[in-house]
């Protein structure tokens, strides 16, 4: 299982002494290795810096997210991968001290520009969280929540369709079809997480962001979710943050490796795991730290 390592990664790497500031270390990492851009991207991140009050958490990241593809973001804890993910649908707006500069585009429109509305953005870019967080409502109401908010259904039958379809797509319909009125919280952890995915799908998003979706789940539930992610790829652009390198290798087509808020290396998953170019990437995937 993934172990949280609280020691900063570079302390183990003895080449760099303790006294260096994060800025200096980041500068020493050099430019991003590999190709950050893809043809015809769904989302495109350019030169993004993120600050929590005075503290900088993300340093000049460039990255594209492509249609019908899963991109995984890996790296030691505190490397900024979750922070970047939360920027992609402006969830960071809820943290008052958080400040984002640079540009993030969705279909060529800047999501931090004045014209873009966070509500609409979040309907188009859905998010699945680390801990399953179903609302304290029935299973049906959980899934119907988004469509109702946004007025996506014309009538009750429409809504029923959306709910059933979303549950089907999330691969949980057969397990819950007879108890749609039960509380969402009555499900098991893995089922809850798939319910949350169904809830996200119900808003018909274009991109789905997943923040360590399996970290609170057992291996069997994890396997089901991974299978589901692979199916969802056909219809959505997916970005997933994970602690598990195996998971990244299993579900994603491209992988981005982050270190201390810097995108160190990005490329095809196969290449990253078999032939990493950057020294740190190699050390990380071979388990020298993490």
């Amino acid at each position: 299982m993934n172990k949280e390592n609280t020691i900063p990664a570079l302390d183990i790497d003895q080449q760099t002494p303790n006294e260096q500031t994060i800025e200096e270390i980041v500068a020493s990492l050099g430019d991003t290795v590999g190709e950050a851009r893809v043809e015809n991207p769904k989302m495109s991140v350019s030169g993004v810096d993120v600050f929590y009050a005075e503290k900088q958490a993300i340093f000049g990241v460039d990255l594209d997210i492509a249609n019908n593809e899963v991109i995984s973001m890996i790296g030691p804890s505190g490397c900024g991968k979750s922070t970047l993910l939360r920027c992609l649908n402006r969830m960071n707006d809820t943290i008052p001290i958080c400040r984002v500069t640079g540009e993030i585009m969705l279909d060529g429109e800047g999501i931090y520009s004045k014209d873009t509305d966070p509500v609409l953005l979040r309907a188009r870019v859905g998010m699945v969280f680390q801990k399953p967080n179903p609302f304290p409502k029935s299973i049906y109401e959980n899934v119907a929540y988004g469509p109702r908010l946004h007025g996506l259904n014309r009538n009750k039958a429409d809504l029923d369709d959306i709910v059933v379809n979303s549950l089907r797509k999330a691969g949980i319909y057969d397990e819950v079809k007879n108890r749609l009125d039960d509380a969402g919280t009555s499900l098991s952890g893995g089922q809850q997480q798939r319910l949350c995915i169904a809830r996200t799908i119900a808003c018909s998003p274009e991109v789905i962001l997943m923040d360590e979706p399996c970290s609170a789940l057992d291996p069997i539930a994890t396997a089901k979710i991974e299978e589901l992610i692979d199916e969802l790829r056909e219809n959505y652009a997916i970005a997933i943050v994970t602690h598990s390198m195996q998971q990244a290798a299993r579900v994603s087509q491209r992988t981005a490796y982050f270190h201390l808020g810097k995108l160190v290396e990005v490329g095809d998953t196969d290449t990253i795991f078999t032939n990493p170019k950057h020294e740190l990437t190699e050390k990380y995937i071979t388990g020298r730290f993490g």
Binding site: L120, H150, L152
Partner: peptide, 17 residues
């Protein structure tokens, strides 16, 4: 259909905003 559904979402959300 998928593409249509997507733009559908956008339109409807915009209407309600």
């Amino acid at each position: 259909t998928q593409v249509q559904a997507m733009s559908d979402t956008t339109i409807r959300v915009r209407q309600s905003l």
